[in-house]
Design a protein around this nucleic acid. Structure first.
Lengths: 193, 193, 193, 193
DNA sequence: GATGAATGAGGATTCATTCAT
DNA sequence: TATGAATGAATCCTCATTCAT
């Protein structure tokens, strides 16, 4: 095994990233200092720089892997075919699955999106989110064309509504509460009894 | 006129607050420096402290007046009576109206809520939001009881879904696009065609 | 007088710059910390940033004003006309005069030139030095053409030889030792008896 | 062979030193990190400390061997006898030869001299340079006594002028351009045609 | 010998706030 | 009231060096 020696490095790196993730989610990215992360990781602040170039790298990596996974999951859903409502159902399920796994990333993205989007360094996040929005919009548009979805509701509003709803849900959800199903049902059929 | 001297003071104060509002909305609370606000207001940074104790006072005042107005509006809606769907319709309308008027406050609250909620200084904001959430939940619960709203959907999820959806909408909405109506229709009747 | 209020600011600024100048000359640019400068100026380190954007601004301003003065002086010398040896004599005199007045700048430029030239931020210094070198080279070339200066000696070597010689002289010279005259004589007529 | 084991050690040590030399010359001593040297040498940063106690040892060794060689060469020149102009000619030749061989050391000494001279650790470099300066001064003084060199030019100024001129030349010289001869000619006979 | 993770003091810089004028 | 210079703690980051493996 060639990773006999690399494993500890990788494990430490992941451990630090996990600590950062939690602190960012809990206190916010900017309110978390590099020293906070180091302290909580049991290393000195200088040592963090063995693993990460900068504080920005930490959040970037955390958000990128979330968006990576999300994008892949969404593409798979779309590639699977099916009509718009069914696709939408699977998109919502994928979204909840991703946000449950990357809870911290979802929360951080939710509250830092606006700020990060202003920094050139994070332009790629914006691009990725645009791709995702485009993907959802296309599905909804298709549903409007076939008459399975209502034509009078803007697809971009719907997507952002969903995106933020899911992120917000992540803040207080506990797994296995059937949240995704409730959410989907609300989205498709509305609140009316 | 007794306000011959107080008026300029008050006008200046409001002007500064308005500038801060916009900057906070545009760049975020923490990314905006006191000096930025002073510069954009045409006063010196030291002078701000004649009007406001601290930077926190600025955001507090801005968020408080937003939440004040929102709470009053919601209370009025509820006091007006009517069944749950109708009440909900008026709540959504009130929410959109408030967020359109206090756009910056809506945005800032959206992205700073989690951070501010951790500070004792802003505990009262949390209380106010809890009151608001309670108010919405009660309306939805009543709808569930009468059978006009679906019993299988959690009222807290629904509320937060709505709250965040509206805030997010504020970021890109332009007035008079019928957003509130679309949103309400989506909420009550769902996306299905 | 409109500068009744600006004067103190300007005076302080100049005082800080003078302190930085001396410390840079004495210990080198990089070995001098911002705190060193602040301490020696009797202010706190944060206060320096009222006057200067950055440590780089400090050295930039100091070197720029030296090169400004040098360039102007050299241009005047050349504009005055005269044959090459006479022009060279006046160039040497101007160089010594400038380096005596901007002793610290001469020393710092001498030892930091190579390092600073690598930073994009200081590209303009390189350009200015190139103009100066071009100016000297042209004079020497002219002398070679008229036969008043030896044709077998490279003008660029000569210029750099002179430039560094003068800077080095600045480190140990005391005013009014006739250094410039000696230097010029050595340059034109050589060491041979 | 007893050096079967020592040779690699020595070879490695020299290789690291050579890399450090080049990096110091290219970016400057302080701007070069120990890790830069390790990376460029193909070893890990910790491994450097098997060969060198510290970063200072690296520069010390590099400058010392340059000054060693220079001192020996100069002593030989002086020991050879001959009149002052001839001795000076051989000194200049020796200087150019040394600086061509130890180009990096020449450059580094040129720009770090002032800084290093302040550190007790490098006091011995100062002493060595003083010996060298003394040696040159003596030769020039002798020439003044015999009338072969001009009596009106300070020998210390001349020496430093030469020292810095040669170092500066090293930065842009390419071998075999007859630079040494030009330089010597300029020094002895001046620029006048 | 070699590794490379860990150290920790120290660097430049930021910024909300204060206060003498 | 208004100024704006001054504060000083806090931030992110660097880097020569050490040491257990």
């Amino acid at each position: 095994m060639r990773n006999r020696e690399k494993a500890p490095y990788h494990a430490r790196r992941e451990a630090v990233l996990a600590v950062a993730r939690d602190l960012f989610a809990e206190r916010g990215y900017r309110a978390t200092t590099v020293r906070d992360i180091a302290d909580a990781s049991g290393v000195l602040s200088g040592s963090l720089y063995h693993y990460f170039d900068s504080k920005e790298t930490l959040i970037d990596e955390m958000l990128s892997s979330y968006l990576d996974e999300l994008t892949i999951a969404y593409r798979n859903v779309v590639a699977q075919g099916g009509d718009a409502p069914a696709t939408l159902a699977r998109l919502v399920a994928a979204a909840f699955a991703a946000v449950e796994k990357h809870r911290a990333a979802g929360l951080v993205l939710h509250s830092e999106r606006h700020h990060l989007a202003r920094l050139p360094r994070f332009a790629h996040l914006v691009e990725r989110e645009e791709e995702i929005e485009h993907l959802w919009s296309t599905v909804i548009e298709r549903g409007k064309t076939t008459g399975q979805l209502r034509p009078d509701i803007d697809e971009h509003m719907t997507y952002r509504f969903v995106r933020d709803g899911i992120c917000a849900a992540a803040r207080w959800s506990r797994p296995a509460t059937g949240l995704a199903e409730q959410f989907l049902s609300l989205l498709l059929d509305g609140l009316r009894g």
